[in-house]
């Protein structure tokens, strides 16, 4: 029996009359790459915020890394990593300064930060860029660096919010190699994306429509169930009927 690192039960968030996330129930296992898909406005962001301890649910329950999302948000934050396309690193700091800063806020010791940043730069092949400003790096490198920084403190789970938007296909795959490697090390990956081929790289995916999880399975099983060969079609069949958008 594999360890469960995220467990939600009828997790709901209301904003007035509007039910952004409507009773979602699912589990994510240790070391799993879990794809969290949905159309714009389906409630993905709200759900993710609740799981990261940034937003208090209206009802239902959820544990992340074994901690309760109502009461133990501080412990949750210490055990997760987060990266989004919009905010990742400080553009006006150098690569090393960014690593030192993020290592510092997660309470890593100086010696620890030093060894980790060296191995991180070696892994990414960025030793010669260590003293460059992050703003001067190509987008793809920024994204890879930003992911590595998000898992620097060895979190149990890392949340990735559309991490590869606009990145070229080769860099995108290098990015996914990093994700695979992290998953092999036992880090659970929780990822949202608009690229349907990336959904295929996930062990399991859920598709949200109008605040509810309409489907949750392996990509292969979903394609069989919806009698199609591409994830794109699965998504289209499910999300076409969506009533709402952001």
């Amino acid at each position: 029996m594999t360890e469960t690192v995220i467990k939600t039960d009828k997790l709901t968030k209301r904003f007035g009359d509007f039910i952004a996330t409507n009773g979602i129930t699912f589990e994510v296992h240790k070391g799993e790459i879990f794809g969290f898909l949905g159309a714009n406005g389906a409630g993905k962001t709200t759900a993710m915020r609740m799981l990261c301890g940034l937003s208090k649910p209206s009802s239902g329950s959820a544990q992340v890394a074994g901690f309760d999302v109502y009461k133990q948000t501080e412990q949750i934050k210490r055990n997760i990593g987060y990266m989004s396309q919009k905010f990742s690193l400080y553009e006006d700091l150098t690569v090393v300064e960014n690593i030192r800063f993020f290592g510092g806020i997660y309470g890593l010791s100086n010696a620890d930060i030093k060894t980790k940043s060296e191995s991180l730069l070696a892994q990414l092949g960025m030793e010669s860029e260590a003293k460059k400003l992050v703003g001067s790096l190509p987008l793809g490198w920024k994204q890879k660096l930003s992911f590595s920084v998000a898992v620097l403190h060895r979190p149990k789970i890392v949340f990735l919010d559309e991490p590869t938007g606009g990145v070229d296909p080769v860099t995108r795959r290098q990015f996914w190699n990093l994700i695979y490697a992290a998953a092999q090390d036992g880090i659970t990956i929780f990822v949202t994306t608009h690229y349907m081929d990336e959904a295929e790289y996930c062990n399991r995916i859920s598709i949200m429509v109008d605040g509810k999880i309409e489907a949750l399975d392996t990509p292969r099983a979903l394609k069989q169930r919806y009698n199609t060969t591409t994830m794109d079609d699965v998504f289209y069949q499910l999300a076409r009927g969506a009533k709402r958008s952001e």
């Binding site: 159309a39 559309e162 938007g165 608009h194």
Partner: peptide, 8 residues
């Protein structure tokens, strides 16, 4: 279409 979901 950047940042827009697959259906849109």
């Amino acid at each position: 279409t950047t940042g827009v979901d697959p259906v849109s």
